[in-house]
Nucleic acid binder design. Structure first.
Lengths: 148, 148
DNA sequence: TTTTATGCAAACCGTTTGCAGAATC
DNA sequence: GATTCTGCAAACGGTTTGCATAAAA
């Protein structure tokens, strides 16, 4: 179950935050996209829905949603942060370097590696970050049809 | 074999670049540190060696070294880039969240996972990024001795 | 009606660029 | 002596903050 408007309302009120039109727009922009969006990209989308929102609000809303676990940051290579809808629990991203689509996967199974590294180095491992880069099936077929 | 002054001189001249005092200082700063350093941190260290270098030069040198494969970028969570000495070939980082020490490891063995994901999603996987976060053995023992 | 959220403008921080002088080859 | 490199200052882009107004509870 992915966050919906109802979930948004519930999450906000549970934590003492208010439900505003801007916050609904921002969530809508992210939900309706399968890519990871930079704050600027979210801003562009939100403006089409409601031209009166400011970029600053987008930043503040993204951070709030991120804290509340509704969305999550994607690290990646670029210089600005990106956000995408948060799936449930621990997961990782596979990012298409052409179109930016993000696919999630959850079963990373790094526990063997973690344990071995921990023993070898004495590190107490608290977390990890794993991302794959590549070209999604869509972009791969696009290239073929363009060439043809 | 890690890059030394000799290797630096060779690499630079092979690629048509000149060997300067600043470039030696920057490499020295990175070689003498086991942590990943931000450009600002490199700058601080370099200044102690030679107060006449500018931050701009540090940026340019870091990018150059990175292109030449002498050092490599660490992504991590922070807002600014970090660099550390480049080990040979494909590798990953284990980063201590307390002191910033970076330990390398090479055998990530994600090929099984890559292949499975590739089949499941149609992605053509070109690369990945894997980092572990935790506390290094040094910091773990420090806590004990401080408490004691 | 009290509290939180918004928008604007301006500050901020890390990074990049243009250009004249300095250093290397 | 030609070319590359450096340092300064200034521009730049993304992000954050202060504050008065507007909206939600």
């Amino acid at each position: 179950m992915r966050p919906t408007e109802k979930k948004l309302a519930a999450t906000l009120s549970q934590n003492g935050y208010k439900l505003t039109a801007q916050r609904r727009s921002v969530l809508g922009a992210i939900v309706s996209s399968h890519e990871h969006l930079t704050p600027a990209a979210v801003y562009e989308r939100v403006k089409q829905d409601n031209p009166r929102v400011g970029l600053v609000t987008v930043y503040r809303t993204l951070e709030l949603f991120s804290e509340l676990g509704l969305i999550c940051r994607v690290h990646g290579e670029g210089k600005s942060q990106s956000y995408t809808l948060a799936p449930i629990g621990h997961h990782h991203h596979m990012i298409c370097s052409e179109c930016g689509t993000v696919a999630d996967f959850t079963d990373c199974d790094l526990s063997d590696l973690e344990e071995r590294l921990s023993q070898e180095t004495g590190f107490e491992i608290e977390g990890h970050m794993l991302e794959f880069y590549g070209r999604c099936s869509n972009c791969r077929s696009q290239v073929l049809s363009v060439t043809a």
